[in-house]
Design a protein around this nucleic acid. Structure first.
Lengths: 173, 173
DNA sequence: AGTATGTGCTTCGGATTCGAAGCAACTGAG
DNA sequence: CTCAGTTGCTTCGAATCCGAAGCACATACT
């Protein structure tokens, strides 16, 4: 069973490790900056930033969770925390009785603004400085494609409801 | 103070988000695979893999922590867990009385082997499949450079080891 | 040698995390 | 309308995580 798992070639391995290491190192550094610039955790920042980017500064809980790749329960926790700090509000959607709309408050925007310059500085220092303009373009392109692919690929073996996806080999459905 | 923070241009933003999102999505997916293939968390896998890669299948705690970008206390916790499961051993270095050498056991190697094929499958499906060979090469190159840069850049404002903390205004070194 | 500093690891306490289970509102088929 | 299945969110319990503090060995400076 553990026979030749078709080993990744060196390049693939290198790309994989570089991806994981780079993102970990970057996240770690950013986390520190955020911590002492505005007492925010990385997720919290991601949430505020996502909201700030949204059309009306607001999004549904679920969309937010998907956006930052987070568990729903985790998001509930963080949303409560952020609400307590007055950085976001949570109101029930009149449209959908069970849906909750999270919105950025003015305070939230303020914190975001306060933290942003330092955030960018870290990115410049750590991520962009050793790369050329075209490197960055290329990176955005390649990783963008990878991300899009992952976003649209359902979790392996977790899809209990694949209506099609499978060429009805045993399940006519 | 919050005046024009010199906004990142669209490409930079795109690269940054793509990096974070891609790594998060990938990590998440891999985590699930590892969980039900060998009941390992991502860090645990990283640790075993790092050890498996090491010359004698062993490393010092500190090096291990740096390698996977983890806190020391977190590593202590995981090392204990892995030791309890018999996947690694921890022995004091005879050389350095306070240093601990973590080594992969045969069981550890077995688990690693058991989990590896599925791990690679996930990588192929999610990360590599939408990329060309040269994409992967390029990715490895660019991210590799970024990672190396970050590894050698000390944490901002964490003052590596300024001898006196004071800018020799009174201390002529 | 003798003291100040540095290094390696663990313990401690508290914050965060996630999955599973639960609840309420929606949806679609009869 | 009514029932079964979904979907959106929260609660719960247990695992994990990190930084600060602590401890013991090592090294440097005098």
């Amino acid at each position: 069973m553990t026979s030749s798992p078709r080993p990744l070639d060196a390049t693939q391995l290198g790309a994989y490790f570089a991806l994981i290491e780079a993102s970990s190192l970057l996240k770690h550094a950013v986390e520190q900056q955020l911590r002492d610039a505005g007492d925010l955790s990385y997720v919290q920042f991601q949430l505020l930033a996502t909201l700030g980017d949204a059309p009306a500064g607001s999004r549904r809980m679920t969309d937010l969770a998907d956006g930052v790749v987070y568990s729903r329960s985790g998001l509930t926790y963080q949303a409560q925390t952020l609400e307590k700090r007055g950085l976001v509000t949570r109101i029930q959607s009149s449209d959908d009785e069970r849906s909750i709309t999270v919105s950025l408050t003015d305070d939230g925007r303020a914190v975001l603004a306060k933290v942003f310059p330092g955030h960018i500085a870290v990115l410049d220092d750590l991520l962009f400085s050793p790369l050329s303009g075209s490197d960055i373009e290329t990176l955005a392109d390649i990783l963008g494609r990878a991300r899009d692919h992952m976003r649209r690929t359902p979790p392996r073996s977790a899809g209990p409801r694949r209506r099609r996806t499978t060429p009805r080999t045993d399940q006519p459905d």
